[in-house]
Design a binder for these strands. Structure first.
Lengths: 214, 214
DNA sequence: TAAGTACTACACTGATTAGTGTACCTTGAA
DNA sequence: TTCAAGGTACACTAATCAGTGTAGTACTTA
């Protein structure tokens, strides 16, 4: 099994229609429940065309997962830049950043439904593929956040020993908390409750990483 | 669909064999992949007997999930009592507590594999049932931890405003961090790495909730 | 016009699976 | 001994689904 179909094949619009549909259906139904018939129907494409573009159900799933991860990573990178480039009020900026980051989950519902599916399938996914997925998605999140925190710390607004840990902790205290409670958006949570969780998470983070002003 | 089979039916040893086997098979294969034939075979029981005890695949799954959650909750309660009743060295005690709590995940591999399955199915599980699951499992974890932290704070070893938040944060910074990286134990992580994650999580928690000693 | 590429419609295979029906066996209590 | 509850073995239905094969169509390029 290869990670990606290397040579381009077929009409790009068809390929796109297939991956879009696959994302929706995989997300809605999960890997096993999702049927190739449903995907081809949703894509408005013959089932044969699906199999001409992708050798396998498995390969289609992984392609969609990795491409989606890249899209989301790009979106999150933008959010980081928007909120963490110029810091005005650190607490408020971190809260706004985290709220936007949480909102990204709901604005890519298909992808994050798919993330749930991957986590469920973790034990059935070959380790190298799983590694590729982690590298493309979750990990890059931390890796990109860390330098921002480092820079903020260099300006004396935070006291950070290990920027990677700090990035992980900020993520855990905000996004992960919300994601756990909403099952990645599957269970709705009122916006004010989300804001409450994020705010208390950011405050805890700041208490932990604020510079000791003597 | 009812939450539990109310009236007892059949020989308890058979019922037990079925739920044990179901836990293993659901955990190993996930809900959809797991077949009732496989479960009955694993239980050493006729398939008909399975259907005499449980009306449905779905009902069997939910029964197993809820019963497992209760077992794990009981085990975690013991761990809390062991480590958080008498505090000697707060940091060390919290680290030991968290490591034991992480170890509980690996010592109930079938159940936590099943937890992954539930999280994947979250969108397909009727909300009241999902609520029952959350109440039986994850939530009780926080609810039970909070009073311990409250008591420690009352002794002046922590400065806690909202004990529930503090419990959530401690959990996030330790167990959740490890669980995310290991996919609930599906991907192995060396013990020393686990210890590193937990230690840095506890330290961050303490920096955040340590009393300000003027 | 000829050839090649991509897509479609559709039938089909082979395998798996949830759930049922039934006839028969085992065991313990009355 | 009799009876009834619970278990077993096994055959069976109806449905679903991954993946293939094929004959034909549309569009592009030489």
């Amino acid at each position: 099994m290869t990670l990606r179909q290397p040579e381009p094949y077929g009409r790009p619009d068809k390929r796109r229609a297939i991956t879009q549909a696959a994302r929706r259906v995989f997300g809605r139904d999960g890997y096993t429940r999702a049927s190739m018939d449903a995907i081809s129907a949703e894509a408005g494409v013959s089932k044969r065309t699906v199999y001409n573009h992708f050798t396998d159900k498995e390969q289609l799933f992984l392609t969609v997962a990795l491409e989606g991860a890249e899209e989301v990573t790009a979106a999150i990178a933008q959010i980081m830049d928007r909120h963490l480039h110029k810091i005005v009020d650190l607490e408020q900026d971190l809260i706004d950043f985290s709220l936007d980051r949480v909102a990204a989950v709901t604005s890519f519902p298909d992808h994050f439904a798919l993330v749930r599916a991957i986590e469920a399938e973790a034990a059935h996914i070959p380790p190298p593929i799983l590694k590729a997925w982690i590298a493309a998605g979750p990990q890059t999140g931390h890796l990109r956040l860390a330098p921002y925190l480092r820079r903020i710390a260099d300006r004396g607004l935070l006291e950070i020993d290990d920027a990677d840990s700090a990035a992980a902790h900020l993520t855990l205290l905000t996004i992960t908390d919300v994601n756990q409670q909403t099952f990645y958006g599957a269970v709705p949570l009122p916006q004010e409750e989300i804001a409450r969780l994020v705010t208390r998470g950011v405050r805890a983070f700041l208490r932990s990483y604020a510079p000791t002003t003597p």
